[in-house]
């Protein structure tokens, strides 16, 4: 090689030393970006506490009352500050959503992972994921224009059937309402359940597919059919991953806002009947934010008290989910 006056390797030595300060600066910049996420968390915790603490210090409020009072009427003249009606509303819509999403999502996940061929899976999975990409305000509209009206006759028929059974079994019992109001927690929960199906189906499918073929072969090798292999071998092996997907679904449902704000009604309602209207923690925050509350007022602080409750509820679920995911990753 007879080339060039300055050999590139001599250039290189200078280049290598010249680069160093830039490298450091860039690394520092990237580090700052990574640390920024910690500031967001710090910001969330700081804001929630700094606005909620004065709320709990207020003479009309106490943590005890907050947790035990059965009424939440901070915007009325007679004020009650019991978070329970909102928590119950949140739990009802969440439970209904899970009753839809868990069985449907799990069955689809088993079908995709163990029955469908690769090509079908590659197409179906992303298309199903579109369900969780639909803006929630659109789902809210869907709930009150399609789902709730469609549910009303079904509910009436069911309720009348239950009442007639009740009348014969326990004649003294008061019959349940046969009318389903347009705004009710049931239809909001069902729509929310449809929205979170992909969280369950995709993550559970991932978990089941990461189960080694060897386990399946062991089962097939003994003459088991697909369903038996899927239910007895693959499902238990992937259980912690599947559980993590349920937890994520719960956390989504608890934090979901617009569907319930639009379709569940907005009156806090401590009820055992999800066919009634009710308000969730999130719906309450939206409702108050739509109005114009003066900064620093007690009413303004209630949304942060509600927010801190929501934050800790989802945090608990998220930590549980992270712990489960970690466990199933270590399994193989």
């Amino acid at each position: 090689m007879t080339q060039a006056a300055i050999s590139p390797k001599e250039l290189s030595v200078q280049a290598a030393t010249r680069l160093r300060p830039i490298e450091r600066t860039i690394e520092f910049g990237l580090l700052l970006a990574a640390i920024f996420s910690v500031f967001i968390t710090a910001g969330i915790v700081y804001v929630l506490f700094s606005e909620a603490v004065p709320f709990f210090r207020h003479p009309d409020v106490s943590v005890w009352k907050f947790l035990t009072d059965t009424e939440w009427t901070p915007l009325f003249s007679v004020k009650h500050f019991g978070i329970m009606p909102l928590v119950v509303g949140t739990l009802w819509t969440t439970v209904i959503a899970l009753l839809v999403a868990m069985p449907v999502g799990t069955i689809i996940a088993i079908w995709l992972s163990e029955f469908a061929n690769a090509k079908v899976r590659e197409i179906i999975k992303p298309v199903l994921e579109l369900l969780s990409a639909v803006p929630t305000v659109v789902y809210g509209y869907f709930a009150i224009t399609v789902v709730a009206p469609a549910m009303q006759p079904v509910y009436t028929w069911l309720a009348e059937a239950i009442n007639s059974v009740l009348a014969t079994v326990a004649p003294g019992a008061s019959p349940i309402a046969t009318e389903l109001p347009l705004f009710n927690m049931l239809s909001a929960g069902i729509v929310m359940g449809i929205m979170i199906v992909p969280y369950v189906s995709s993550l559970s499918e991932d978990a089941m597919r990461s189960v080694p073929m060897l386990l399946r072969e062991g089962s097939y090798g003994m003459g088991a059919n697909r369903l038996t292999t899927a239910v007895r071998v693959v499902f238990p092996a992937a259980l912690s991953g599947i559980a993590a997907s349920y937890i994520l679904a719960i956390s989504r449902a608890v934090g979901e806002t617009m569907i319930v704000a639009i379709a569940a009604g907005q009156q806090p309602n401590l009820t055992a009947n999800p066919a009634e209207g009710g308000a969730t923690i999130t719906a309450y925050i939206v409702q108050v934010s739509m109005g114009d509350l003066p900064h620093g007022s007690l009413e303004y602080q209630t949304i942060f008290a509600a927010g801190i409750t929501l934050f800790f509820m989802t945090l608990a679920f998220n930590l549980m989910g992270a712990w489960l995911r970690k466990r199933y990753r270590q399994a193989y």
Binding site: M1, Q3, P8, A15
Partner: peptide
């Protein structure tokens, strides 16, 4: 590798790449 060493001119690069 040449670019890392600061060789920028197209003609020099082509020559060295060919070599």
């Amino acid at each position: 590798g040449l670019r890392l060493r600061g060789v920028g001119s197209r003609s020099e690069l082509s020559g060295r790449v060919e070599t």
